[in-house]
Write a protein that binds this DNA or RNA. Structure first.
Lengths: 130, 130
DNA sequence: AGATCATTTCGACGACTGTCAATATGTACG
DNA sequence: CGTACATATTGACAGTCGTCGAAATGATCT
């Protein structure tokens, strides 16, 4: 490892900044979060994706849709106890993030989970189970 | 807020809500997101945790700390191009979320990644790799 | 075309978030 | 104890977010 050196001396930075990147590292699995250097753009993108999930209503949305396999939007306001426009708003965020897929059937809109996308996000988090 | 889903008509709900348990379902692995029913509390908690990660500055923070093994707070304002109070604020959010661990060494504060916590979050996302 | 119903978009509002300068707290050393 | 420096907290401000009612759009059936 770098040099923790319990000793408290002069500037500790010396050993912390660059190193480790390559050397040590017990073979990180995936690319992003735990990878070497996350670019500003990559960070923005990952943050945007995570923001799409980081809301209780949207998490329940994903959960309900996943549990049912597919769900008609018409049932969601009651299930989530939110107004219909609010539900529509959350749905559009999840679709934009690629987590849900929308399909029009007659006058109803149905939603399915994109499991691959969830897997991607998992991997981006540096999935330690690879 | 009338009461939808009751039907005098050919409401599509009929087949959507309960299902999955029904047939296919290739044995979901982990508990939370893709599990049966996410409680309101569970959703709030997961959302809180994800919110902690859903910010570009904090993602870079995690990335930098992970890459270095451990990092002195004193280096971070420069690396992240943010003021010292701002960095301190983000650090405290990550520590509160359990993603980073703080250790005082002399006058410096050092931060390490809690990889187990990240793994937990991954699993909560319904990690399809289990 | 007109009627009806599902969904989206618009407008507004309160709550929360990221940011920094200024100040406070804490830690070590003389 | 007092000084010096690292980090945390406070206060303020602009921007974003979640929410809903109202209105617009889209779809189907007569």
């Amino acid at each position: 490892m770098a040099t923790p050196a319990t000793a408290t001396d002069s500037s500790p930075s010396a050993s912390s900044l660059p190193s480790t990147a390559t050397g040590t590292a017990e073979a990180l699995c995936c690319p992003p979060l735990l990878g070497p250097s996350l670019s500003d753009d990559a960070a923005d993108q990952l943050a945007t994706t995570l923001k799409a999930l980081a809301d209780p209503v949207r998490l329940k949305l994903v959960n309900v849709v996943a549990a049912a396999g597919e769900t008609c939007a018409c049932d969601l306001p009651e299930i989530l106890d939110r107004s219909q426009p609010t539900v529509s708003h959350h749905l559009s965020i999840l679709v934009k993030a690629g987590v849900l897929e929308r399909e029009q059937r007659g006058k109803w809109a149905w939603f399915r989970l994109d499991r691959d996308r969830l897997t991607q996000i998992c991997a981006a988090l540096g999935n330690p189970d690879c």
